[in-house]
């Protein structure tokens, strides 16, 4: 019977939403790893979850409150002169504790808190799908312009100030993409599965291939394979999707031990 569920139209929205996010998160994850900001994705996901829980008392859509919370955290991060993993770790702690405190004190907070932290992909609605498609469209459209800026700033950090070139446009765009990806990933997949999708595919891809484009392609391919496999396994074996995805990605991390091409 579970096999038939795979072809149920009810699951199409969920499947396509997750598929779009698998591409987006694994691609952005590669940029975050290149910038050594991959832990920030987990911090933003936790903050988004905390903000999402507040949607109930505020009477607003989860996407709105989660975006406001994650956007505020990203803005604060930008104001820190040299943000590093210590700041991102603090963001995780704040997000996690706030999410659980809100969940414990808001009517039905535990239910939505559980879904945001663990993930409830099957309850994705068309709004999520449209947002995920929109995000992937913006990402693909911006890629040729955004990518050289991100790489240049990493290797030649004072190129922009030395040549009086404005750096804020590409920083703002990338920050916005990360926030929306973290929010959508958290709302649709859950904070931990979204972070795993940001983190693992790029981590594996960077270790295995030569060349930046090859690394991006492999990162996305690994993310998609892990997602599709998790989706099928979760339905066929009647397992929760979020933990199944995280477990598969964790197993996939073993690919890092394959011989590296230098």
């Amino acid at each position: 019977m579970s096999d038939w569920l795979l072809f149920d139209p009810m699951f199409r929205t969920a499947f396509l939403t997750g598929l779009s996010l698998a591409v987006t998160l694994s691609l952005i994850g590669a940029w975050l790893r290149m910038r050594d900001e991959w832990l920030a994705a987990f911090g933003l996901a936790q903050i988004a979850a905390a903000g999402g829980i507040l949607s109930l008392p505020l009477g607003l859509p989860v996407l709105v409150t989660a975006t406001v919370a994650a956007g505020t955290a990203a803005l604060v991060r930008e104001l820190i002169p040299h943000p590093d993993n210590s700041h991102y770790a603090l963001m995780i702690l704040i997000g996690w504790s706030a999410a659980l405190v809100f969940a414990g004190n808001v009517p039905h907070g535990n239910v939505i808190g559980e879904s945001l932290l663990r993930g409830q992909l099957y309850f994705s609605h068309p709004g999520h799908l449209v947002s995920a498609f929109g995000l992937i469209g913006v990402l693909v459209a911006c890629l040729p312009w955004l990518q050289p800026h991100l790489l240049r700033e990493r290797f030649f950090p004072d190129w922009y100030s030395a040549n009086r070139i404005r750096a804020w446009p590409h920083r703002l765009l990338f920050g916005t993409l990360v926030v929306f990806a973290a929010v959508l990933g958290t709302v649709a997949m859950g904070a931990f599965p979204a972070f795993a999708m940001f983190f693992v595919p790029a981590w594996v891809a960077f270790a295995l291939v030569r060349g930046w484009t090859a690394a991006l392609c492999l990162s996305v391919a690994l993310g998609v394979v892990a997602y599709v496999t998790a989706f099928i396994v979760a339905i066929v074996l009647d397992q929760p999707f979020g933990p199944t995805l995280v477990l598969l990605l964790a197993i996939m991390a073993g690919l890092r031990f394959l011989p590296r091409r230098n």
Partner: peptide, 12 residues
């Protein structure tokens, strides 16, 4: 700056 494990090639 040299990020660890970055697969970027010299010409890139």
């Amino acid at each position: 700056a040299r990020p660890p494990e970055l697969p970027l090639l010299g010409h890139e």
